[in-house]
C-alpha cells in the first residue's frame, strides 16, 4: 500500500515537473520546427553526435541500440497473441541481432577499457553492460544449446498479461534469462525517452545560431 502511494506520488511529481510550461527562448524564434525535427530524427537514429566525437565507440553503441531494438521487437511474439505474417522476418532478424547485441557489448567494454578503464566506466554502466551481455548470452544458449519450448513460454507470458499466470516453464536457463531481462527493465536508463528530446533541442540551437545570429 505504502509503495503504491509512493509510486503514484512519484508519477504525479514527474508529471508536475515535466508538465511545466515550456520556457520561451526568444533567441531561438524563427527556426523551422519541421525541418529541425527531420534532421534530428537522423541525429537520433544514426547517433550522429557520438559519431562526431568518438567513432570506435559509435560503432559499438549504434550496433548495440539497433540490435537491441530488433531483439525486443522479435520478443513481441511472446507477449502478443496475434501478429502479422511478415513478423516472421523480424523474428528471423532477431536471431542475428542477438549475436550482434551480445558481441557489441563486449566490443563496447573493450573500447572503454582501451581509453582508461577506471575513468571511463562507471559502476552503474558496467552493471548494465554485464546485465545485457549475460541476458544476450543466455538467449543465445537457449537458441543453440539448451532448447526451450516456445509455446509454453508464450502461454506463460500471455497468462501474465491476462492476470491468469500459468506455471513457469521448467528451464533453468530460461529462468536465468527471464530474471536478467526483468533486471534490465528495472535498470533501463531513462535516456531512452529523454535523449531524443535533448538531441532535437541541440539541433535546433545549432540551426539557429550557426553563421546566422539573430
Amino acid at each position: 500500500m505504502v509503495l503504491s502511494v509512493a509510486y503514484l506520488r512519484g508519477i504525479i511529481y514527474v508529471i508536475k515537473v515535466f508538465g511545466r510550461k515550456k520556457k520561451k527562448e526568444l533567441y531561438l524564434e524563427g527556426v523551422s520546427e519541421k525541418r529541425t525535427l527531420l534532421v534530428s530524427i537522423c541525429d537520433v537514429v544514426l547517433f550522429r553526435r557520438l559519431f562526431r566525437v568518438n567513432k570506435p565507440l559509435w560503432l559499438g553503441e549504434w550496433l548495440f541500440h539497433l540490435s537491441f531494438t530488433v531483439v525486443l521487437l522479435s520478443h513481441l511474439r511472446l507477449i502478443l497473441s496475434v501478429l502479422p505474417r511478415w513478423w516472421y522476418h523480424v523474428v528471423c532478424m532477431g536471431k542475428y541481432a542477438g549475436w550482434v547485441m551480445t558481441l557489441s557489448m563486449v566490443y563496447i567494454l573493450l573500447v572503454r577499457a582501451s581509453i582508461d578503464y577506471r575513468r571511463y566506466i562507471t559502476p552503474g554502466n558496467l552493471f548494465l553492460i554485464l546485465l545485457i551481455l549475460f541476458s544476450g548470452l543466455s538467449g543465445l544458449l537457449m537458441r543453440y544449446i539448451f532448447r526451450v519450448d516456445i509455446i509454453s513460454i508464450k502461454a506463460y507470458m500471455l497468462g501474465l498479461f491476462a492476470f491468469e499466470p500459468a506455471s513457469f516453464p521448467a528451464y533453468r536457463m530460461l529462468l536465468f534469462h527471464y530474471l536478467l531481462a526483468l533486471l534490465v527493465l528495472i535498470y533501463l536508463p531513462s535516456h531512452i525517452i529523454t535523449a531524443p528530446l535533448t538531441i532535437k533541442e541541440a539541433r535546433r540551437r545549432q540551426r539557429q545560431l550557426t553563421g546566422r545570429m539573430p
Binding site: 511545466r20 515550456k22 566506466i121 562507471t122 552503474g124 554502466n125 535516456h191 529523454t194 535523449a195 528530446l197
Partner: peptide, 14 residues
C-alpha cells in the same frame, strides 16, 4: 522543462 530533461538525459557515458 528543457533543463530538467537534460539532467535526466545524461547517460553518464563520460
Amino acid at each position: 522543462r528543457k533543463e530538467m530533461l537534460e539532467i535526466k538525459a545524461c547517460t553518464q557515458c563520460r
